[in-house]
Design a protein around this nucleic acid. Structure first.
Length: 558
RNA sequence: GCGCCUGUAGCUCAGGGGAUAGAGCAUCGGACUUCUAAUCCGAGUGCCGCAGGUUCGAUUCCUGCCAGGCGCGCCA
């Protein structure tokens, strides 16, 4: 259990005992004791912890909140771990604790290292996190980049929270768009020998298709000898494979590696669509109308029923997706989380319905919808046109601003907020760029420890130093921030809010920088120097931990 | 028309039933003979979109409205 939780539990029982004592002496009359709320106040002047118990209990006690607080406070034992108590504001009870819990925090981090902040909350739950899943017909865009950052960091947060996690990229290599792409590629291939060859009306005009055609010509010169159908099949297979490899490389370059790249065509080959259809048919959830086969998704709360087999006998996108999600569940995952772009939110209802039709609870599938990303340059929104092949790809972005800045920027916003990505700011190697601010804190600590070693001062163990020397305001604030990590990480995971981690990292870096200017280390007396060395080593450990969750490098020097 | 997201400082955004609503940037003024000044310290800024409701207490929760973005295919 985290130090903070342990502290809260102790306080809770102390408050409970105080209330009981007050009742025993007839000062307070309560039919029952409400939940005892405890929080770490934003303003450190309000103590280490504060409780609103008196405000909540006031009505039941038929007394003014401040009076209730006063009575409870009067029964709290001082001198032990509670250093001081005050009643403040509308009736808060503020607790000032002895510093032991802060020193405990330092020792805990030293003992747990990179495991500090982890929990076992998620034990027993197997989460499958599917994200990005961009069509294998071209380069990824900036929303894909946002999804990649959010999904990857969520996966890391889930692992830290004790969940078993699988990450997957669903490759939609069997649908319409793959066919359009194949025809485009085939046409560009033909045009290499026959410039007059017609390019499909709905084809992809972008130049990467031409470049791909040239590679294809070298690797598969036999294509011209084939029949058209066979030729298109090869273009589709080979072309989407090329795109997948490119996407894989781009994502790796961005610090994101999936456990599994799941091919839609494998589902088709395995007969999984037919199997899913038969399953639904067997449960009486399909019907025929207008020459097509429909899934009665309205049975499970969807707006309208959905076509599963088109009148031409082919399948819709949702058919394959049902089969895919069925496959995930059959692999033993207890929770499916999909991260989608904003244009897919209308799709949630039918997939939720499908999951229930397959016999699983309505909480099984959770869909997180990201919002759009607008790129700004010189304060102006960058206009993009996919049709014209003019758009900034994920790779462009990573090349321009770097992996660390890109990830940090995406993760610095709540997932559901529309995001303005300022390219000029992200690329700036200056104090304006928040990612450097955090990395700089890490590098500064490395530098101190390095110079200490050069001076023959090695890092002592917390048991060898007098931690009570850490009494400066900036030191106390810093340790409190370290103490709050476990709860922050857990909340970020449970609420699916990775931006909490960037905020935590920025706050920690800020507290460290402030400490750094107020407190020297290597020039101080041995005992103070050693205590501070232990402190900054733990700060560095935590910085490395949170940067690792964000997928951002923790440099030794800058 | 229906659905989703958003509306908080000049800008970009956090926060969230409770104490004086925060941060970064921008603006202004300070701090380097000492561990990295990519840093720190200080200063000002707010009908928390509007109107009702619930509550001891609402910027936060509920309802309605207004504004911006997006979606409502036998596309994916």
């Amino acid at each position: 259990m985290s130090v903070v939780l342990k502290q809260k539990e102790q306080l809770r029982s102390a408050i409970q005992a105080a209330i009981e004592a007050a009742q025993a002496s007839d000062e307070l009359e309560l039919a029952s004791v409400p939940d005892i709320g405890l929080e770490v106040p934003r303003d450190s002047g309000h103590g280490d912890f504060a409780s609103n118990i008196a405000l909540v209990a006031a009505k039941m006690a038929r007394k003014a909140p401040r009076d209730v607080a006063q009575i409870i406070a009067g029964h709290l034992p001082l001198g032990g771990f509670i250093r001081d108590v005050e009643v403040a504001g509308p009736g808060f009870i503020n607790f000032f604790l002895s510093y032991d819990w802060l020193f405990d925090t330092i020792r805990t981090i030293e003992r747990e290292g990179q495991a500090y902040g982890d929990s076992t909350q998620g034990a027993g739950e197997k989460i499958l996190l599917e994200f990005v899943s961009a069509n294998p017909v071209g380069p990824m865009n900036v929303v894909n980049a946002r999804a990649a950052a959010v999904g990857d960091t969520l996966a890391r947060l889930f692992r830290a929270a004790g969940y078993t996690v699988g990450t997957e990229f669903y490759v939609n290599d069997a649908g319409n768009q793959a066919d359009v792409f194949a025809r485009s590629l085939e046409a560009r291939y033909q045009q290499l020998t026959d410039p007059g060859y017609a390019f499909p009306e709905d084809g992809y005009p972008a130049s990467y298709v031409c470049e791909l055609a040239e590679v294809l010509q070298k690797e598969h010169p036999e294509l011209l000898e084939m029949g058209r159908e066979e030729r298109l099949a090869l273009c589709k297979r080979w072309g989407t494979d090329q795109m997948v490899e490119m996407q894989k490389a781009d994502l790796k370059n961005y610090g994101v590696e999936f456990d599994l790249w799941f091919r839609e065509r494998d589902l088709h080959a395995a007969g999984a669509l037919e199997e899913a259809i038969a399953f639904l048919e067997h449960r009486g959830l399909l019907f025929e109308a207008e020459d097509a086969k429909w899934f009665r998704s309205t049975e499970f709360g969807d707006d309208k029923d959905r076509v599963i087999v088109k009148s031409d006998g082919s399948y819709t996108y949702v058919t394959a997706d049902i089969a895919y999600h069925h496959d995930k569940l059959k692999r033993g995952y207890t929770k499916l989380i999909d991260i989608w772009g904003p244009d897919h939110h209308g799709y949630i209802g039918r997939m939720q319905a499908a999951i229930q039709a397959l016999g699983y609870g309505e909480d099984t599938l959770e869909v997180l919808i990201l919002q759009y990303v607008a790129l700004l340059r010189n304060g102006q929104q960058v206009k993009m046109s996919k049709r014209a092949g003019e758009f900034i790809t994920m790779q462009d972005l990573v090349e321009e601003v770097g992996k660390d800045a890109a990830r940090f920027f995406f993760l610095n916003r709540s997932p559901e907020s529309h995001l303005d990505f300022d390219l000029d700011l992200a690329v700036e190697q200056s104090n304006e760029n928040p990612v450097f601010y955090v990395q700089y804190a890490h590098a500064r600590i490395s530098s101190i420890l390095r110079q200490g070693r050069e001076m023959g001062v090695s890092l002592p163990s917390s048991t060898e130093v007098d931690l009570s020397l850490l009494a400066h305001d900036s030191e106390i604030a810093l340790i409190k921030q370290l103490a709050s990590l476990p709860e922050e990480l857990l909340t970020a995971a449970v609420q699916r809010e990775p931006h909490r981690v960037t905020r935590y990292a920025l706050d920690l870096a800020s507290l460290f920088h402030s400490f750094y200017t107020h407190c020297h280390i290597l020039g101080e007396t041995d005992s103070l120097r050693d205590a501070r060395l232990v402190l900054v080593a733990q700060v560095q450990c935590v910085l490395r931990k949170v940067l690792g969750i964000l997928g951002v490098d923790a440099p030794e020097q800058m």
